[in-house]
């Protein structure tokens, strides 16, 4: 079943997972969190690990990020065995190659938006002047030009997650992991956030790995892996039905827009949805597509 979509790929996969198994021992019982996962991810691919709570999707992501060690199997990223790396090497590896977007945003509460975003650059030893410049640019790109000096507690959930996205992308990592990135957000903001992540990763030719239980979110991916009880039970090639409109550049977002994503989101919802590219998919996806135009219309406003 885990045949993967490798057939389509001509190039070497950047992430290659073979026979990944994780066993937890609960008393006398052995629980398989992951049970023989085989998975290849291509460069610039957006994949989604879709599954219910407890299916093992988060464990899989954690292992790819080197945060957990597998019981069996291997994870190779850029030719290096992540599962065999030391903590020290992992820190540097993550610093160079990985960005993270979390469900709970995980911003540092005492740092303002700029400092939070520039954190990965600071860890990489980038000079303050340069990293602040990059962070500001990134924040503007995410429509937070007016909130750069705000601390996480002074921002709404959507804004915080945008800071989180800015932080994940600021160092232009080759892989970005997003673990339930919209789990704490309302539908409207969810679409905004997903749009933004997908756009950014497309623009920079990054690989995006999304973990979710939400099929609407999964619709943004090129490939959807359905995970049930630690196994990949089906792989769905979603390229043709993708939820994201192809046109529109990240640069468009760079405009310093006022009050985006804040409570003032209501009027924008009335914006023409007709421009939305029609899709032959089910109603659900159609709705997402309509809503997905919002960031664009907002930015083109000025």
């Amino acid at each position: 079943m885990a045949e993967t979509v490798a057939a389509q790929a001509k190039k070497e996969p950047i992430i290659s997972i073979k026979g990944l198994t994780k066993v937890f021992t609960l008393g006398k019982e052995k629980v398989y969190a992951l049970n023989g996962i085989d998975l290849d991810v291509q460069e610039n691919e957006i994949i989604c690990l879709l599954g219910t709570s407890g299916s093992g999707k988060s464990t899989l992501l954690n292992m790819m990020a080197g945060l957990e060690k597998p019981t069996k199997g291997s994870i190779t990223i850029f030719g290096e065995r992540v599962d065999k790396m030391s903590e020290r090497k992992l820190a540097i590896f993550r610093q160079k190659n990985m960005g993270f977007v979390f469900q709970a945003y995980n911003l540092l509460p005492n740092l303002n938006a700029i400092d939070n975003v520039s954190l990965p650059l600071a860890f990489a030893g980038v000079k303050k002047r340069i990293r602040v410049k990059k962070a500001k640019k990134m924040l503007k790109l995410c429509g937070l030009g007016k909130r750069m000096k705000h601390k996480p507690t002074q921002m709404s959930g959507g804004q915080q997650q945008r800071v989180g996205i800015a932080r994940a992308f600021v160092a232009t990592p080759k892989i970005v992991f997003a673990d339930e990135p919209t789990g704490n957000l309302d539908t409207h903001t969810t679409i905004e956030i997903m749009e933004m992540m997908v756009r950014m990763s497309r623009e920079n030719h990054q690989t995006l790995i999304i973990v979710t239980h939400d099929t609407e979110i999964a619709a943004y991916a090129d490939t959807i892996y359905h995970i049930i009880d630690g196994r990949i039970c089906s792989v769905e090639d979603n390229r043709e039905h993708q939820a994201l409109p192809p046109e529109g550049h990240i640069g468009d977002l760079a405009a310093d827009e006022p009050e985006v994503g804040s409570e003032a989101g209501e009027p924008e919802l009335e914006m023409p949805a007709a421009e939305a590219e029609s899709s032959p998919q089910e109603e659900e996806i159609g709705r997402i597509l309509q809503n997905s135009q919002i960031p664009n219309t907002l930015s083109t406003e000025e």
Partner: peptide, 13 residues
């Protein structure tokens, strides 16, 4: 939590 976040984001030990 903060320390964990920093580690995940790539802060060296």
């Amino acid at each position: 939590r903060e320390i964990g976040i920093m580690k995940v984001i790539g802060c060296k030990l």
